[in-house]
Design a protein around this nucleic acid. Structure first.
Lengths: 150, 150
DNA sequence: ATACGAATGCGAATCAGTCGCAATACCATT
DNA sequence: AATGGTATTGCGACTGATTCGCATTCGTAT
């Protein structure tokens, strides 16, 4: 659960566009949203905002620590955003259905710190993305192979 | 050391542009090369190739498994390529000087597989990027702080 | 040498994201 | 509630990275 976010507390004045983008993000916590997703959500469910404003507001939110930006797709380099909950986590991305599963593994987390320290490097951030095929798509694959055999 | 690559063995006919790009990559194994780096290298040291061809050839190489494509920069989304040696490895990127250090940690590798298996997911690929400040830049930072104090 | 398909060169197009600037909205103050 | 000054927005034009379409050229098997 993500605590209700108050823009003023994050040092941002409350403007209509910012509230709209925040609402869009809060309404879609289940998925990672691209700027375009936010744009289309607002167009359909709310009041249209120009793309440039969507980008700007998302950048402001990122700076303020309200959202986190990721770039999952190994090929296409579209960026997506998610509301930042207190817990850091890594991502597992299904290359078939593009679904994203979040996880956190303490063992990996602590090992990363060890590696980095051994090299005199100071860690500010990291991203671990696992790409593969999720259980759901795997099942579907098996089914369609069945179908072909018949 | 990377084994000498033979284009024909990888299913690619030997053309002048492909050989040129391969040479450029082989001459710069120490760094990760962007399409633009390859373009400029050829312009200066060899014979110019149009950007579109550089991109095309790099894409062909990627498909053939000759190079690997990464996107390190968390913000800017420029892609870089490196010749694929047999060993997979992860990357540690200095956010100051942009230098990239490669590493491989068996503990993390095996833990990833465990995590994925527990979730019925089949792993095809992964990327682990650690961002921080390298020993060299850390030293420089400390020095300039000294300088300011004086 | 010839012919066929594959690969290239060229520029135009696309795609995601950013920028400059005039117009407007916030909000503290009267 | 009106006012003023700053922060934010809307608009369109722009950029940088990458891709595409298509006529031309090259590589290779005959």
């Amino acid at each position: 659960m993500i605590a209700k976010i108050n823009l003023k507390e994050q040092g941002l004045t409350e403007t209509t566009p910012r509230l709209a983008v925040l609402k869009a993000m809060e309404a879609n916590t289940a998925q990672h949203m691209s700027a375009d997703d936010v744009y289309r959500y607002l167009l359909e469910r709310d009041r249209p905002l120009p793309m440039s404003t969507v980008y700007r507001v998302l950048a402001q939110f990122e700076q303020a620590g309200i959202v986190e930006r990721h770039s999952f797709d190994a090929e296409r380099t579209k960026q997506v955003y998610e509301l930042k909950d207190s817990e850091h986590h890594d991502h597992m991305i299904c290359i078939k259905c593009r679904s994203v599963h979040e996880f956190l593994d303490p063992q990996i987390e602590s090992r990363q710190i060890e590696i980095v320290e051994n090299l005199g490097f100071s860690l500010t951030d990291h991203s671990l993305n696992l790409y593969g095929i999720c259980a759901g798509c795997d099942r579907k694959d098996a089914q369609s192979e069945e179908a072909i055999k018949q």
